[in-house]
């Protein structure tokens, strides 16, 4: 696996799975969920019209998604670079292990806090994107 591929895989996995806290509302959700909420907010603005609060909500979600995506990219970049420099042969197994363990935890546990959901306050990966 090339470092570039490892970086992308780790980053996409983190975007999809890592629970990240939200200001004001106490949520802990992955970046993909932030994007989903941003998409719903944008659709509501398009269909129903704009306003101070809809715009603020959209900005809140988009800002979280952008900041977290950037931070995660940097973390992945440094992580891969470190493995590449000190133990290049371990890059593939560690990347695979991180993604698989993360996936198992995200599916097996209600790792996400989802105050914007319709039913449950906590969710696993299988329901956090609904």
């Amino acid at each position: 696996m090339s470092p570039r591929a490892a970086r992308w895989i780790l980053w996409l996995a983190a975007l999809a799975m890592l629970p990240l806290p939200m200001l004001l509302f106490g949520a802990q959700i992955p970046v993909t969920r932030y994007l989903l909420l941003a998409g719903v907010s944008a659709m509501l603005i398009v269909t129903e019209g704009s306003g101070q609060i809809p715009i603020l909500m959209l900005v809140l979600f988009v800002a979280h998604a952008l900041v977290y995506a950037a931070v995660l990219w940097l973390v992945c970049w440094f992580w891969v670079r470190a493995w590449e420099r000190y133990a290049p042969s371990w890059l593939l197994p560690t990347t695979t292990a991180i993604v698989l363990v993360g996936l198992a935890l995200a599916i097996g546990f209600n790792a996400y806090v989802t105050p914007f959901a319709s039913v449950e306050p906590r969710a696993s990966l299988l329901s956090v994107l609904q």
């Binding site: 306003g51 101070q52 609060i53 809809p54």
Partner: peptide, 9 residues
Amino acid sequence: LTYLTQNGR
């Protein structure tokens, strides 16, 4: 989300 955005709007 809908309550917050539409109520405020």
